[in-house]
Amino acid sequence: MKKIISKCIFAGAALVASVSLACAQDKVSVAAISGYFAQGFGVSIVNGLNKAKTDFGIDLKLVDTGNRALDYEEQFANLAKDGKYDLIFVMGWELVDALQKASAAYPNQRFVFIDGVLDSDKMIYANFAEEQGSFIAGALAGMIESKGSAFDKIGDGKAIGFVGGRDIPVIRNFLGGYEQGSKYAAPDITVKPVFAGTFDDPAKGSELTQALYNEGADIVYNVAGPTGEGVMQASAAADKYSIGVDIDMCSTAPGNVLGSMLKRGDIAVYSLIKDEVEGHKVMPGTRTFDLASGGVELKVCDDIAPKIPEEVKAKLDEIRKGIVDGSIKVAKAK
């Protein structure tokens, strides 16, 4: 703090008055806490935070929670106790209990919970319409699967697969969108979902994916965090298809990844910090990041795109428009 003040005095003396005016405002401080910054969605969030740091010169602190539930509450208390941070971003459903306690203990601290909406009205929620992106993923997978052996690497199983991490609401929401999309675009295709029960076990992800391929599902949608690395590997090993999630995963198994359902955590955190820096204080409530605002989207891999039939592409565009203008309603999972 002292440093900033002395810098400002110096700047004020040396430069024009407007600079010292800018300095008089407190620099925005942001912290982010999660156990999953090194993976998929977490990487996307860290990218957004770093971009905000470069663009706006905010103070940024990343805190890794590790995986011991015993530690969470103290970590929240350590972050919130001085009121040093304007916003604290929180990612991960395992932190919800500790987050709610911290929010009650430090009512003036603004917490941003990424990836869902909780009961409390004291927090800011960055909510993603993952069901919309998954709808398109389901539509794509369904239409490709229904081509049967006319499409490279597809069999006659008439099924598509889904590997979820844990059975929690947000993952159910992915599954719900995927099922609705598949049903909408290819009604004769069945969806076979499995849950790994963990986000941290690539070997299990690989096993489950192999089992789905054996059951005739030729395309498997990975919604399983690090467990999902196994899904991508299995698609390469079995020479079938996978669909990535959160970030662009096309390079994990080139030729075997149809596309990735991008969940733009970076856009969400960046836009929230931008508002804060520009003086629009972020207040408790829900911000939804959906297909229309670019918060979610399906990116078809560049090496696959030329193989996809024109009528499928046209249908996907039509669905995209339908979701954005509201003529196609995608239900959230309850």
């Binding site: 459903w93 395992e94 919800v96 209990d97 844990r166 059975d167 929690i168 609401p169 849950f195 029960g197």
Partner: peptide, 12 residues
């Protein structure tokens, strides 16, 4: 925890 006694909704 996941299959027999899970609290509906929320974390496992």
């Amino acid at each position: 925890t996941i299959f027999l006694f899970k609290r509906p909704g929320g974390w496992s």
